[in-house]
């Protein structure tokens, strides 16, 4: 059995959990939701681009193309880039909620309605 249906279910659960967490009022849960959402998106790339097990994309010596079916390395490069980016951005988000907590004095989005209209 391939792992793709399992991954699809996992991605769905992660998206659902992330959405639920982001709808809560707590800032901490908001950021945890964002982290889960970014993981879900990365796994989605992994799942949709097709999984090939045990076939690294290496070209044998003396040949110009790989031998037989090999795994596609591009999605993994995309995911790696996306992980690095989301690491940086989420680090910023964590610092931001810490500062917001210090300034506002509450871990509650309902306390932060001054700039809304």
């Amino acid at each position: 059995m391939t792992a793709e249906p399992l991954l699809a279910i996992l991605v769905g659960v992660l998206f659902a959990t992330a959405t639920y967490l982001m709808l809560r009022r707590s800032l901490v849960k908001l950021v945890i939701g964002l982290i889960l959402l970014s993981n879900a998106a990365n796994l989605l790339i992994f799942a949709t681009s097709g999984l090939t097990r045990g076939a690294p994309p290496l070209i044998p010596e003396g040949m110009l193309t790989p031998d037989g079916v090999v795994a596609d390395p591009l999605p993994q490069a995309l995911i790696l880039t996306a992980i690095v980016i989301s690491f940086g951005v989420l680090a910023f988000a964590v610092v931001l909620i810490h500062r917001a907590y210090e300034v506002v004095g509450a871990d509650d989005l309902d306390e932060m309605k001054d700039t809304d209209t």
Partner: peptide
Amino acid sequence: MEGAIKYVTLNLVSSLILLAAVGLTY
């Protein structure tokens, strides 16, 4: 700070939707 929380959250959500759509396109 208050404005930034909303700005950061919604823009990150949008970026992740974009990323998911890129994955599906691939």
